[in-house]
Write a protein that binds this DNA or RNA. Sequence first.
DNA 1: TATGAATGAGAGTTCATTCAT
DNA 2: CATGAATGAACTCTCATTCAT
Lengths: 202, 202, 202, 202
Amino acid sequence: MINSAKTGSFPDKRTQILEATVIVLAAKGFEATKIAEIAREAGIGKGTVYEYFSSKEDLFEQAIQHATKMHAQMLTNALEAGENLEDSLERALMASLVFCETSRPTAQVLLNNPVGRGGASLGDWLLGFRRQMVDMIAKTIRRHRGPDFPRDPEIAANVFLGALNNLSLAQILDDGTTRIRSLKATTKEAVAIILEGLGREA
Amino acid sequence: MINSAKTGSFPDKRTQILEATVIVLAAKGFEATKIAEIAREAGIGKGTVYEYFSSKEDLFEQAIQHATKMHAQMLTNALEAGENLEDSLERALMASLVFCETSRPTAQVLLNNPVGRGGASLGDWLLGFRRQMVDMIAKTIRRHRGPDFPRDPEIAANVFLGALNNLSLAQILDDGTTRIRSLKATTKEAVAIILEGLGREA
Amino acid sequence: MINSAKTGSFPDKRTQILEATVIVLAAKGFEATKIAEIAREAGIGKGTVYEYFSSKEDLFEQAIQHATKMHAQMLTNALEAGENLEDSLERALMASLVFCETSRPTAQVLLNNPVGRGGASLGDWLLGFRRQMVDMIAKTIRRHRGPDFPRDPEIAANVFLGALNNLSLAQILDDGTTRIRSLKATTKEAVAIILEGLGREA
Amino acid sequence: MINSAKTGSFPDKRTQILEATVIVLAAKGFEATKIAEIAREAGIGKGTVYEYFSSKEDLFEQAIQHATKMHAQMLTNALEAGENLEDSLERALMASLVFCETSRPTAQVLLNNPVGRGGASLGDWLLGFRRQMVDMIAKTIRRHRGPDFPRDPEIAANVFLGALNNLSLAQILDDGTTRIRSLKATTKEAVAIILEGLGREA
DNA sequence: TATGAATGAGAGTTCATTCAT
DNA sequence: CATGAATGAACTCTCATTCAT
């Protein structure tokens, strides 16, 4: 074998299993996902899974971390690439909505909020990760708005992250039959609401 | 028998089981919740659970619907009681945060987004329920702001619902050690952000 | 209540339960027969069954003994009433076939050969009972044919009893759609075969 | 691997389970037979049973069909090998009695008449099978006696099959302590009775 | 005496995990 | 390394039996 699976950047067997896990997880939910089906989806033997992961819990943990990191990386890139706050938020929201379409299974798994599932270690990891995300959004706000920003950046970050999650969830749940607006229009409108607010007076 | 279990406001056995289910579900997560433990928590025999629910799936379904309805009722009341949009949103958000403290287990179960768990029937039910909630918020916005409201009320509703969910989740996850602001202050600030926005310019 | 259930000859509650047991046993088979269903069939509460029988095993045992005795009594009467061997055998066979029609459930239970089911005590009882039946038929043969009967009366009895059981079973199993001959004709023909034989030569 | 389990005539695991099932079924009866005990008898793990049979019902069904076919094959061979009616019947009866001694457990299961046990599908299968057996015996009678045979061959077949079953049952039930006659003698006598009859006159 | 809600021992079944090949 | 047949711990669910009413 000339080109070992371990060397190339194309999916090695580990990644292959991780991706199969996310696909099955998205299709069946946590309880109904069996190792046997993951192996079938990955096109390998059941026993092989245990060559790469020590247990089902370990596999799920890593699969969720894998998915979480992918999503987070995408958001991080978007937020950092933005030239101003509007741009950053639009890029991030747009990216998330696109992610829901292109990586549906991964998005589904993430939006099922796997906090509290699996061992405590995964819960802690996700908790820490969530904090990082909030911090990053808050930092982005501060970066664009400076230290005089009159709002609590952390709460603002939570509002934006919540909106992003919720709109992404809506995107996932709507089977595409009811979508009237384009992703772009939805993004623009949502960011407009977040930047301009609903207005104070009647 | 003067005060029948069916007539009094104290929990009958069915409700007792439902509440035990939510408690265990919150503590252990979906996969790790066993019928035996629910029975122990409810202080009854294992077999008794099956006198009131036909299967584990049925029990989970009803427990989640029970919890969902409680939360939804609370939000509905808050939104309808508000005298203007600010009031409605503040009441709803405040109520949700308070709910997280007073009914921690129920809130935990709800925020675990059980969409996609259990049978398809529960998934459909939750999907429909989520739509109802979005509609209700959108309706509240229209009620207070009239038909000339320049924003898409549905997207605005999603933004608010997302913020509410995310802040509630933050409330649940933070073990109380890191909370700097009071519930009231958090609510005020969050609603202020939603009403006034983050501002367009740098 | 003037005419207590215990005094009259009409079915008291004990007999009522016994008969319900036979009915359910015939309809569902041994494994699938539940105490709850017997109680429902008898129109009484589940707990009441235990006022009359100490356990499920006891109930089944007595129900089967009840059914066995009814059938045996009928055969005994028929055999004793016969004026010669042909008459005795015809009466017995006819009675059994009629019994299958009029007491279908009881016949079904009996023909399921419950030997070996239930506790060893029932098995022993049935074993003894079967011997009694064979003895009675053998005795009938001896009575009509005298001590010079050239055949082994016990084997002859087994042949007749087997034929009777098998034809009764056929009667039970055939849903009545395929029966060409009348009960009378079948009886006559079968007894003719047993008395005259199939013949030795080609 | 030189001598694959699939190729040899020694029992593969499926057959091994089937045979263990018959043994336990014979020893304990239908109700008392547990999967755990079958597995123990077969010398395998409980879960392994489910690698070869989808459920307890499925296993019982196949075990009974297996046993039924063995017995039927034996009878068929005997009936066909006979050179005249007497020979056919003697061979069949003898074979059945021998079968009861050599394959006691199988015989016990068969003679418990599992018609009506298990799912309706098994009941139908056994019903059909019984019809085939009667037809085969009737055909054998016609083959040896020609179309002018004065008796109804089907009833004659039922008489013989009943006698065979009943004598086999007697053979099974007698623990060997009370047997006076040899198998051969019993067979000869029984067939003599069937061929010559008990005689019409007193 | 009659009842049926409550019970829990025990059965069938699943499936993560192992290990001989 | 890769595999999947074999396994048994652990789960859900059933149902005979009890007992307060």
